[in-house]
């Protein structure tokens, strides 16, 4: 479970990216965090894993309140897949990238190997094990980036614009993969069709605030979507 209470994020230049958001994501839920550019989606996700400091409010993940001392524990419970997979794939080979988090978690060599193979197999990308991320397609990179987080077995996964850089086929593969995951998911996106296929709840952000929170029917609300800089789905 992920619980955000009155979360506020202010950048050093004074920009208020997130303005008092309260949100509870229940176990197993797949929540679409939708909104136009600058709505505060990425800032909210980065705050949830402690990359951005809170200017106000509190965050609780898997029963742990985010704080200086609990940062490690929260990051073990909450994984984040970044918008650009190139930022997430920084090791020479995919195996090392997927193993990175497991090794930091203190797993033995054999356990790391088992986890990596299991995760790559589960996502259908076992063939990428010994490949360099420099030589992968956008879709392959995205799946590899998901594997890096999935291998750590977090209870909540945050996705930042997961469909960015993906073609139709890669998007289909991603839809299937995300649907098959048992974890609680929060997916920040402005791809409403994708959100409609994968998620079971929608939270609409505008100017760092929650404009609406409810079922996926919100994504079909033309007036609301237009107000948030998005195009409603039919």
């Amino acid at each position: 479970m992920l619980k955000l209470q009155d979360v506020t994020v202010v950048y050093p230049d004074g920009t208020k990216a997130v303005d008092g958001i309260s949100l509870t994501v229940r176990e197993g839920e797949r929540v679409a965090l939708v909104g136009g550019n600058g709505a505060g989606k990425t800032s909210l996700l980065l705050a949830a894993v402690g990359v951005l400091g809170l200017s106000g409010g509190s965050i609780e993940a898997a029963g742990i309140t985010l704080g200086k001392k609990t940062l490690g524990a929260v990051r073990e419970a909450v994984g984040m897949v970044f918008q650009n997979p190139d930022d997430q794939l920084f090791m020479p080979y995919i195996y090392d990238d997927v193993a990175f988090g497991c090794r930091n978690g203190g797993m033995s060599g054999a356990e790391v190997e088992r986890r990596v193979d299991e995760t790559l197999g589960r996502l259908g990308i076992a063939g990428l094990r010994s490949r360099s991320s420099l030589k992968l397609s956008g879709g392959e990179k995205r799946m590899a980036a998901i594997a890096t987080v999935l291998a750590m077995d977090p209870s909540v996964i945050l996705f930042d614009e997961p469909t960015a850089f993906l073609d139709h086929r890669a998007k289909r593969t991603l839809v299937t993969a995300l649907r098959s995951l048992g974890q609680t998911q929060v997916i920040a996106t402005h791809d409403l069709v994708f959100a409609d296929e994968v998620c079971n709840r929608a939270v609409v952000l505008k100017d760092g605030r929650v404009a609406a929170d409810g079922s996926l029917i919100l994504l079909r609300d033309k007036a609301l979507m237009a107000d948030c800089g998005l195009e409603a789905i039919n």
């Binding site: 073990e76 994984g79 984040m80 650009n84 930091n104 978690g105």
Partner: peptide
């Protein structure tokens, strides 16, 4: 700028400069 994003991705997966890796081998 890019290095900062990479660093964020690293810390999100348990990297902490100065922290001892809990090696069990």
């Amino acid at each position: 700028d890019r290095a900062e994003r990479v660093y964020h991705a690293m810390v999100c997966r348990g990297y902490a400069p100065g922290a001892q890796v809990r090696a069990t081998d």
